[in-house]
Design a protein around this nucleic acid. Structure first.
Length: 299
DNA sequence: CGCCAGGTTAGAG
DNA sequence: CTCTAACATGGC
């Protein structure tokens, strides 16, 4: 059972795949050759999907081929899978206006040519976005992936298929019950432990729901998220960019953005947050994508 | 060894 | 309102 999800011309499967391949410790998807496998739960039923680029079809069929490996799926589930994949790779955003806007830009002009078709690979689940952002606060990415690997192995759900284990992120009801005694041994700091559980509680008690936030403007959604202890401006904007794809979300405090600008401008020092905000005014409406391409420029 | 890392908070001035 | 220490430890 397989079908194709159409993708626009401004989409590069390879570039998005390179993002997904950036850590060997990532458990939430797995590559087999050039195919990505990911475990999903449709109405609590585990469905293992495999995606690959649809290359050798007619241009109208250009896109991503989806296959369900462990089960057959009905029409409704097929529609859900298509929706998931369209969201995951942000296929519904038209990048042409962004490319036109920055084609002659000093910082982004070359980057958007070099990485044409690169899109924000998202995290369709808001809770997962937030926890992952907290894990990445103030530490290097390699270590953040180590923490996430331990966290998912211990508290997530797993599913075995053809001798391989596939994992899904733990739900808020599980995370809300965790304690320092369980998280500190994974080398969470007390702070990360507290923030992670706070987020779990906010979602488990439905103080925050993905559905309620999905209809809000960026500022309202950001302010709602920032009421959770541990979620600051960087974390909120990161999650909103990855989950809801607000094109104007951007984590201005991000050290990756700062380093990228410093390197591209061959400057000795990193810009301040205020300087970044000023610089980003010319990307208005496309801050999330400006951020993505700056990240991509980093070594 | 030293510096930095996909930040946030509480508390002081 | 702005500034700072504390958080904690891996990676290079």
């Amino acid at each position: 059972m397989e079908f194709v999800v159409a993708a626009p011309l401004e989409f590069s499967f390879d570039l998005c795949a390179s993002f997904l391949k950036r850590s060997p410790r990532e458990l939430l998807h797995r590559f087999e050759n050039d195919r990505v496998r990911k475990l999903l739960h449709l109405k609590d039923r585990p469905v293992l999907i495999e995606l690959c680029e649809s290359k050798d079809l007619s241009p109208a069929q250009r896109g991503i081929t989806i296959r369900a490996l462990n089960t057959t799926i009905n029409t409704e589930e097929r529609a859900q899978l298509e929706k998931y994949v369209r969201e995951w790779f942000d296929l519904d955003t038209d990048l042409k206006p962004f490319y036109e806007k920055v084609s002659a830009d000093k910082l982004l002009g070359e980057l958007v040519t070099k990485f044409h078709g690169y899109r924000i690979v998202g995290q369709p689940d808001l809770f997962e976005s937030l926890v992952w952002a907290v894990l990445g606060q103030q530490i290097n990415l390699a270590f953040a992936y180590t923490l996430k690997q331990r966290f998912v192995e211990q508290f997530g759900t797993s599913y075995e298929f053809e001798g391989q284990h596939y994992y899904a992120f733990p739900g808020p009801e599980v995370v809300a019950q965790l304690t320092d005694a369980e998280l500190l041994p994974l080398q969470f700091s007390r702070q990360k432990s507290k923030y992670t559980v706070e987020i779990g509680k906010a979602f488990a008690e439905k103080v925050i729901t993905q559905e309620a936030l999905s209809s809000m403007p960026l500022e309202a959604a950001r302010d709602t998220l920032m009421q959770i202890k541990g979620v600051g401006n960087w974390t909120a904007n990161y999650a909103l960019m990855k989950t809801f794809r607000y094109k104007d979300a951007f984590p201005a405090e991000d050290v990756g953005i700062h380093n990228s600008i410093r390197l591209l401008k061959k400057s000795k020092r990193k810009p301040t947050v205020e300087e970044v905000r000023k610089l980003f005014k010319k990307y208005k409406g496309w801050e999330a994508y400006a951020t993505l391409y700056l990240w991509k420029s980093l070594p």
